[in-house]
Amino acid sequence: MSVSQSIVNSIIKVILRATCKIDTSELYKIPKKGPYILVINHISFLEAPIFYIFMRPRRTIAMAKSELWDKKVTAFLMNLWEVLPIKRGTIDIQGMKNCVKVLEGGDFLCLAPEGTRSGDGQLGSGKAGVIMFAQKGNAPIIPMAHWGGEKLSSNLKKLKRTPFVIRVGDPVEIAVPEGVKMDSTVRQQIADEVMVEIAKLMPEEYHGVYKGKTDVEPQYLRRIKESVIN
């Protein structure tokens, strides 16, 4: 870690500790080394520094919309944290190649399948594009869920610390039966199944569009045995 990274991370960590009560008790479930794809729900800006800082010493590389590099402050943080820019609304070939390189290097690639912040913590539909990264990178997927960050603004006004809960699920891998064509419909089904894995880790009040679907067995995901991980 560079000197600038160490200084900025330390400052942000102090701020986070002062404003939030962060439950990181399940981060031990994540292997110390990759490659793995970490998929999370997307609520607010808060999750980015929390996951980046508290996941250490694991080297995690996240994807983010390229527009974040338009402003000096966010561009500085994105570059400091080695975030990969992704162009939205198009097939970003170079962005995809950069993500695959992260996995080939044995690191953790962080994705938010929803593609945009919910603001209120309710799960939105996963985007099929995230499955392309999982396919190309040929890496297991670890679902992660978090909630509480949606209350940060209101709690700050009340001078209250915000509880921020993180939960980690069992790793899965994409397993498409032989003879099934991997088309856009199947990719969307897989994306939804990944989002259901996230929903299973959360209180029902946050399930959003996946409410009532957590009891359905996945068709294209297969759980990985612990012995394989370790």
Results as ranks from 00 to 15, higher is better:
residue 110 C to V: 15
residue 76 F to P: 03
residue 132 M to L: 14
residue 147 W to Y: 10
residue 110 C to W: 10
residue 109 L to I: 15
residue 129 G to M: 06
residue 85 P to C: 00
residue 74 T to Q: 07
residue 86 I to H: 00
residue 146 H to Y: 12
residue 77 L to Y: 01
residue 138 N to I: 12
residue 105 G to P: 01
residue 131 I to N: 12
residue 101 K to V: 05
residue 108 F to G: 02
residue 150 E to T: 04
residue 66 S to R: 11
residue 145 A to M: 08
residue 76 F to C: 00
residue 130 V to Y: 07
residue 139 A to K: 08
residue 77 L to G: 00
residue 94 Q to G: 04
residue 127 K to A: 08
residue 153 S to K: 15
residue 72 K to H: 14
residue 137 G to E: 05
residue 162 T to E: 14
residue 129 G to P: 01
residue 137 G to W: 07
residue 111 L to R: 04
residue 141 I to H: 10
residue 146 H to F: 11
residue 79 N to Q: 11
residue 148 G to M: 03
residue 125 S to C: 11
residue 82 E to P: 04
residue 133 F to D: 06
residue 120 D to A: 02
residue 102 V to M: 06
residue 141 I to R: 09
residue 117 R to C: 13
residue 123 L to E: 03
residue 89 G to R: 03
residue 140 P to C: 12
residue 126 G to K: 06
residue 83 V to K: 00
residue 111 L to Q: 06
residue 98 N to Y: 09
residue 142 I to Q: 12
residue 67 E to V: 06
residue 115 G to L: 00
residue 90 T to K: 00
residue 150 E to A: 05
residue 152 L to D: 00
residue 71 K to T: 04
residue 99 C to V: 05
residue 118 S to P: 12
residue 162 T to Q: 10
residue 81 W to V: 10
residue 74 T to M: 08
residue 101 K to M: 01
residue 115 G to T: 06
residue 94 Q to R: 06
residue 147 W to A: 04
residue 75 A to K: 13
residue 125 S to F: 13
residue 135 Q to A: 10
residue 142 I to G: 12
residue 156 L to S: 14
residue 131 I to T: 15
residue 90 T to W: 02
residue 159 L to P: 11
residue 99 C to N: 07
residue 143 P to L: 14
residue 151 K to L: 14
residue 101 K to Q: 01
residue 79 N to D: 13
residue 69 W to Y: 13
residue 131 I to H: 13
residue 102 V to W: 03
residue 106 G to I: 03
residue 131 I to R: 12
residue 119 G to D: 06
residue 112 A to C: 13
residue 148 G to P: 07
residue 144 M to N: 07
residue 94 Q to F: 08
residue 132 M to F: 11
residue 137 G to M: 06
residue 140 P to Y: 10
residue 157 K to C: 14
residue 90 T to Y: 02
residue 76 F to N: 06
residue 103 L to I: 00
residue 151 K to Q: 15
residue 155 N to P: 09
residue 141 I to N: 11
residue 133 F to P: 10
residue 69 W to H: 09
residue 85 P to G: 01
residue 116 T to I: 01
residue 157 K to M: 15
residue 159 L to G: 12
residue 99 C to P: 07
residue 120 D to C: 04
residue 78 M to N: 05
residue 98 N to R: 14
residue 141 I to V: 15
residue 154 S to H: 15
residue 84 L to D: 05
residue 86 I to R: 03
residue 139 A to T: 07
residue 104 E to V: 01
residue 108 F to W: 00
residue 124 G to I: 05
residue 91 I to E: 02
residue 130 V to L: 13
residue 157 K to P: 13
residue 77 L to E: 02
residue 109 L to W: 13
residue 67 E to L: 05
residue 71 K to F: 10
residue 78 M to H: 05
residue 89 G to E: 00
residue 162 T to D: 12
residue 149 G to Y: 02
residue 148 G to D: 05
residue 138 N to P: 13
residue 95 G to V: 04
residue 159 L to M: 15
residue 108 F to V: 04
residue 116 T to S: 06
residue 113 P to A: 13
residue 85 P to T: 02
